[in-house]
Amino acid sequence: MLRGLYTAASGMMAQQRRHDTVTNNIANLNTPGYKAMTATIRSFPEMLVSAMGGSEQNRTSPIGKLTTGVFAEESRINFGQGDLVQTNRAQDLALVADIEVAGAVFDESGKYVDEQGNVVYQPQVFFTVLAPNGERQYTRDGSFRTAPDGTLITAEGNPVLGVDGQPIVINDTWDNIAVLNDGTLYDKQLGQPIPGAQLMLTVVDNPNMLIREGYKRFRYEGPPGGIRQVQPGDRVEIRQGFLERSNADPTQSMVDLMSALRLYEANQRVIQFYDESLRLAANEIGKV
């Protein structure tokens, strides 16, 4: 039947997905540590269309390439640095990172393409938390608090892990504690680091290998060698008394929202036109 009917329908579905993704970004404009998402759209594989028959038998003449649809392929996360907002709470920590990779100059989206066309992504740093299923997961949200037994937990109640892979337990008031850039907790009264208390700051070499879990946590699905503890030379800072704001951009989100809506509308109109053509074919052709 008419191919384009299905192409237009797939277009509506893809734009709906884009709209959903943008709505979720708008919903999380005030979520600390939130990273905006983009739905990438890809067309179905191309096929070659040929005209059959014609004046000479058994001869086909190519007409051209045709794709028969479009779909939302992946939801990519933009790991760009969010703005910092001052809260003055000693347990609020914000990560500021600009990790360098030799020979790469990253653009704003954290990507570098060299002359051979190889793509390098900028590594990103995360706090390590223990998810309810016992797995290590990663977060950029540093709005921590303390459980009654002194364990440092996230706002959702998951323990924050130290370098030894154990939860960090502090039975003192946090006003006495300074957090150094490598994650060491430092007792301001004694003037020395607290033994065994250093936050595990995980560097993920290719952050695209992270899958969003929700509740501000990410799960790593890449090769095991792609994650490591932060090294002294990495450009990573912890700001105590600050939180990293969501990096979703309201202006861009509004534009994307309008564009998704209008493209959805355009596809809907195309379906209506096809419907009209089908009506003519069914009811008007051959009418006596």
């Binding site: 997905r17 959903d20 993704t21 979720n24 999380n28 739905a39 992946e74 939801s75 899958i211 929700g214």
Partner: peptide, 8 residues
Amino acid sequence: GFTQGWGM
């Protein structure tokens, strides 16, 4: 996999 969020 295509991830989808449900607000906050």
